[in-house]
Design a protein around this nucleic acid. Structure first.
Lengths: 118, 118
DNA sequence: GTTGCGGTTCGATTGACGTCGAACATTCCG
DNA sequence: CGGAATGTTCGACGTCAATCGAACCGCAAC
């Protein structure tokens, strides 16, 4: 069964994305910063540690791993395993198909561009 | 000081709305149902008990009161006191000015139109 | 007034969530 | 091979949030 190597980790199908779950994933400040960092990185994707650098947050790696799982299981991010590291990308098209405009609205917040206030 | 009777209860000014707070307010299923009910009701506004009816949720009134406070303090709803009851409305223009497209994206979820799944 | 309706406040409980450190598994590299 | 790098898993801990019932307050209506 060629379960398409990328499904070594669980990704919920588009139809099963739940709005409240996605919103909850975005609602956590650390996670929102992570999402923005992944968004800035764009298409090839970024590794967890790289994201942590870019997001400018100081948390243990176990916490980081936890947030990644929440983001992935809520359908916000996709995790592609590449060697020893996980490449993270946003599920832009999926999110936009399921909840049109939501991701853009969240990413567009002007306060966060400079990494400003809480 | 004519503190404009409507400020007997606290409403955060537009500039102070925080994205994560608003998202957290939306992320709670019961609260999301409440928001939808208020949205459907439209402009004159609806009372708490009426909203509870429309939203089709079964919770104690203390819990309802709690949710209303979260929604109000996050800047999602406005509470106008009218006699013995609170008239609830969405702060549409404020939300749209601060987080363009967010409210629409949240309200547009097709799953909830019929009051469907969790 | 006194009764009833609409909501808030309080205190307590319960479960979920964010955080950490330590241990582990894989992969890369010298 | 052996060690460093990258993440995950596993408790454990503390905090926050949702929920409830009971008491309370204001207004309305009789």
């Amino acid at each position: 069964m060629l379960a398409s190597m990328s499904d070594v980790v669980f990704h919920p199908p588009v139809e099963e994305l739940v709005l409240t779950k996605v919103l909850a994933a975005f609602a956590e400040p650390a996670r929102l910063a992570i999402v923005r960092a992944i968004a800035r990185a764009g298409e090839p994707g970024v590794s967890c540690t790289q994201v942590q650098q870019d997001a400018g947050i100081e948390i243990g790696k176990s916490t980081m791993s936890h947030h990644q799982r929440v983001l992935r299981e809520s359908g916000v991010t996709r995790t592609r395993i590449e060697g020893s590291r996980r490449m993270l990308t946003l599920r832009r098209t999926d999110l936009d198909r399921r909840f049109p405009g939501l991701l853009d609205a969240v990413l567009a917040d002007s306060d966060a561009v400079t990494g400003a206030r809480a």
